[in-house]
Structure formats: structure tokens, C-alpha cells
Simulated assay, not measured.
Amino acid sequence: MAPASFHHEKVCVMDASGRLGSNLVERLLQIGYTVHAAVQGHVFHGHIGDLKFNGGENKKLKIFHADPFDYQSITDALKGCSGLFYAFEPPEDQPTYDEFMAEEEVRAAHNVIEACAQTDTIDKVVFTSSATAVVWGDNNPQPDLDERHWSDVNFCRKLKLWHALSKTVAEKTAWALAMDRGINMVSINGGLLMGPNLSITHPYLKGAAEMYEYGTFVTVDLNFLVDAHICVFQDVSSYGRYLCFNHVINRHEDAIQLARLLSPSTPSPPQSDEEANTIIQQRLSNKKLNKLMEDFESGGALEDWSQNSPSTIEI
């Protein structure tokens, strides 16, 4: 169970300029944390994402420019913090995933975990990964998949699934180093993050049709993803990896709705009654996270969690 109060805890969020990071900063401040918001390669104009901070009025917030490829800047941002929430954001000059992005993401993960190992105050790291680091392999379809499974790196390379390749190799690198350095780390393997700026070019969507057919195409809402990060950080019993999603695209209607959202101008294909009524078996389990969040919510640490999160789909 989580401790009753976090008013004296200091945590770092990196990269705080991304959509997940900026919302994590906001939520952590709301529940009493002091936050080191580490932004990379972005000109800071007094706001992170939708958050505006005027003239340092919020004494619990400190902004750092931390480049994951600059070790010293990471250690500066981590100084005095008991925890780190880390999510990789592609460099501004290379915003899309390609065959070289895995090297960048691995190097960043290695630097960040090593910096945590050199920071005496760090008690826990929450590492943001992706469901794409779980679902891809030559042996699809398997009967079921959960956090114990890893995407096959060679398969990802063969099919040019660069997002899955990067997330898998970077997360494996982080785990190997965390175990070697004795760092308490948990990972959140999120589904496709839904939101207003989602487009068909999102690298997660490479292979979307296959994920749909295999029953492994999952999405997550921002509030649910943020709460999951805070839950696994605060709960002392959390361990290992957590698949994080609250919707499964496994009906033809769901797939059509998502396609409309991603490409509004493209006409929807006609569907037969049989297609409309087909439900593909969900083969990805989020029970591990659901159980932790149920226990956590009953402790009252995330008092607004139940209002923010839609009902999860059981399998």
C-alpha cells in the first residue's frame, strides 16, 4: 500500500515536455510532490505542454534542460530526487522512427539508468515502454500474451517495425542495467495513446492490421496512463513490467471508428453483417495492472482514478 503522504517527496519527470510527461508533472504537483521537470531540446517559454508556470510561482516545480545524450545534464536533474518517471521522446531533428532510432533510444536509456545508479537518493524508476515491446513475434498468434512476453527483435527488423524494435531493445537494455546496478525499476508498457493529435503516421500503427487480426491491438487514455504510472511508483509491491491499456480494438466497428479518426477524409469500406458482428478474441492481458490499481484505488491515494478511467475489458 502507498504511504499516506508524499508532501516531502521530490521526483523527476523526463521528458516533461511530451504529452505524457507534462500531464504527469501536473498530476504529481496536484497530489503534493515537488517535481524536477526535465525537458530536452525544447525552448522553454514558461509552459510545459498545456501547463503554464508564471515567474516561478509554483515553488514545488523546478525546470531542468536535460538531454538524455548528455550524462551530466541528467544527473543535475536527478539531484535530490527519490524517483524518476522516464519516457523517451525522439529528438526534434528526427521525429519519426527508422532503423537507426533503436540506437538512439538505447543510448538514452543507458545514460538515464546509469545516472540513476550514481544518484544516491533514487529509490525507484518508472520506465515508460510500449505494448509493441510485447506483441510481435514469428509465432503469432499465440494463445495469450502478457508482461512475460517480449517482441522478437529479428522479426521486428525483418518487418521494419522500427517502433517495436526500438522499444524492445531500449527496455531490455534498461532492465539489464537496472538489475546489474541494483536499481528498483518498473516498466509501463502502454497501448496506443489516444488523443487529438493522433495521426495515421504514428509509428505505433505500423502493423495495425496484423495487431487487430491477432487480438493485440490495444489503446490507452491519457488519464489512465498517468494514473498507472503514479500507482506503480507509489505502491511498494509493484515489480517488473505492466501492460497498460483500457480499450481493445477487437470489433470491426472499433476498427472503422479508429480509421475515421486517423483519416477523416477516407471513405469507410462497406461491411457485411457478419463482419459487423465479429469479435476477435482478445489475446493480451492487463490483469496484473488492473489488480494493482484496484488495490491502490481502495487505499484512496488516487481519489479521482475511478472517475477518470473507463471500465477495463476483462478476458
Rank of each mutant, 00 (worst) to 15 (best):
Q282R: 15
V13W: 01
Y33C: 05
D180Q: 15
T132V: 13
C116L: 00
D146G: 01
V248Q: 09
E275N: 09
S151F: 02
F296R: 13
Y212L: 14
A38R: 10
E89Y: 05
V43K: 15
H65L: 11
E314P: 05
M14I: 07
D15C: 11
T34I: 02
M211Q: 15
V220Q: 09
L258H: 06
K60P: 02
V153S: 06
G240V: 04
D50R: 15
I188Y: 00
Q234M: 14
A133E: 02
K124V: 03
G300E: 05
P3W: 03
E274V: 11
D70K: 09
F155L: 02
G46R: 12
E147S: 09
T128D: 03
Q282A: 15
A133Y: 02
G240M: 03
D67N: 14
A16F: 00
H65R: 10
L222M: 15
Y86I: 07
K206A: 10
S130N: 01
L28D: 01
K291F: 10
E147Q: 07
R283T: 07
A259Q: 12
Q257F: 08
S238H: 06
I63A: 04
A2T: 07
A228I: 03
Q282G: 12
P91H: 00
I249W: 04
L61I: 06
N277Y: 08
Q30I: 08
Q257L: 11
M179K: 08
D120Q: 14
A37P: 00
F85L: 01
